[in-house]
Every structure is written in structure tokens, then in C-alpha cells.
Design a protein around this nucleic acid. Structure first.
Length: 112
DNA sequence: GACTTGACTAGAC
DNA sequence: AGTCTAGCCAAGT
């Protein structure tokens, strides 16, 4: 695996439980704004322990295909963390990670 | 080293 | 809201 790949795993490991990040965001935080696809490529061979399921596409949807047999798995894993999907999508406004160095915002159901 | 592939993204219709 | 197209760039063959 490339050095970039390892950085991807490391960063993904920092995504708080119950939140998600997009491929593009991860690439940007690693200083590679055009390497969103490379992020996904790195996840193809990610080691166990990496919360790969917290990575979704820019629309908040799951980019995996049935061919990988993990499309449903990701949804299940996300919902186990309290991340609910609406029409196959996640609300990035609500579950989107702010990024490294940012404090996780408190989640609340109602206004506050 | 050229060609193909891909867990992406933004824009247009 | 769903589909199609163009752009992107490194890994794999």
C-alpha cells in the first residue's frame, strides 16, 4: 500500500463514531483535493479495524456496488452507530465530520 | 511506458 | 429527483 493509503486509514480512524466523511473531504484533508478516487482505492485493501464504513460519497450515498458484496454491510454498520440513511443517503449536514482538528459538534434532535 | 480501470465529483438536462 | 457527461489522477495490467 502506498504512503497515501496509510494516511487515509489513519485519518479515517479519527472519524468519530456516528459521523461520516466523504472521499473528497478525506483527500482534501490529506492535501490531495483531486484524489478522492484514490481514497476509495486505498479502502479496497484497508486492514480490519479501519472504520471504512464511515466514508461515503459527496452525496452522502454509498458508492460500493453489489459486486463487492459490502453495499448492504456499510448501511448496517452505519445504522449501528446511529447514522440513519434516507433514500439511501446520509445527511452530511447532520452526520458530516468537521475534519481533523475540529471538535465534534453536539448532535441534537431538536433546536437548541 | 501506453491503455484500462475505478469504493469520486461537479455540472447539465 | 434521476440520468448522462466531462474531468480528474494514480494504481493495475
Amino acid at each position: 500500500m502506498t504512503d497515501f493509503g496509510r494516511r487515509v486509514w489513519h485519518l479515517i480512524g479519527k472519524i468519530p463514531r456516528g459521523q461520516v466523511a466523504s472521499y473528497g473531504q478525506i483527500a482534501r484533508w490529506l492535501g490531495r483535493p483531486r484524489h478522492a478516487r484514490l481514497v476509495g482505492m486505498s479502502l479496497r485493501s484497508c486492514p480490519s479495524g479501519v472504520a471504512w464504513h464511515r466514508v461515503v460519497n459527496a452525496r452522502g450515498g454509498i458508492s460500493l456496488r453489489a459486486a463487492h458484496g459490502s453495499m448492504l454491510t456499510q448501511r448496517i454498520l452505519l445504522e449501528q452507530e446511529g447514522v440513519l440513511l434516507r433514500s439511501g443517503r446520509v445527511s452530511l449536514a447532520r452526520y458530516g465530520w468537521q475534519g481533523p482538528g475540529k471538535v465534534s459538534r453536539p448532535r441534537r434532535r431538536h433546536g437548541g
